Amino acid sequence: MQRVDGRLVLSPTDLTKHVACPHITTLDLQAATSGERGGAKAPDDALNLIFAKGNAHEADYLQRLKDQGLTVTEIARTSDKQLAEIETLRAMREGADVI
Rank of each mutant, 00 (worst) to 15 (best):
R64D: 08
P12G: 14
K17F: 05
T25C: 14
S34G: 05
R64F: 12
A91S: 05
I50P: 00
L89A: 10
D45T: 03
A42T: 11
A91W: 00
D14T: 13
D60C: 04
T33K: 07
K66S: 07
I75N: 00
K66V: 01
S11Y: 11
E85W: 02
C21H: 12
D44E: 10
R77Y: 05
N48V: 12
L70N: 05
L49Y: 08
Q63A: 07
S11K: 14
E85L: 08
I50E: 01
G38S: 08
D60S: 14
P12I: 03
S11I: 05
D28F: 04
L8Q: 14
R3E: 07
G54A: 05
Q2A: 13
E85Q: 06
V4T: 07
Y61H: 09
E74M: 05
Q82H: 03
E36M: 13
T26M: 10
Q30M: 12
Y61R: 09
Q30E: 09
L47R: 05
L15M: 09
G39T: 06
L47Q: 11
T33M: 09
T78A: 04
N55P: 00
K66W: 01
T25M: 15
S34C: 12
Y61D: 00
Q68R: 15
K81E: 08
V9H: 09
L83G: 04
Q68V: 01
E36H: 12
H18L: 06
G35S: 09
T88F: 10
R37L: 13
H18T: 10
R37C: 05
G95K: 12
C21S: 15
A56Q: 13
D80P: 02
D80I: 11
G69H: 12
I99C: 01
D28W: 01
A40G: 08
E94C: 04
D60L: 09
E74Q: 14
P22L: 07
A40P: 01
A20S: 14
A59C: 00
Q82K: 08
K41S: 06
K17W: 07
L27H: 15
L83F: 04
D97Y: 01
G39R: 14
T33W: 09
V9M: 11
R37G: 10
Q63R: 10
Q30C: 09
A20G: 13
Q2L: 14
G35R: 06
Q2W: 08
E87Q: 14
T26D: 12
L29Y: 11
N48E: 15
G6N: 11
L27E: 15
D80V: 07
K81A: 10
A52I: 00
Q82D: 08
L49S: 10
A31T: 12
K53I: 00
K41W: 05
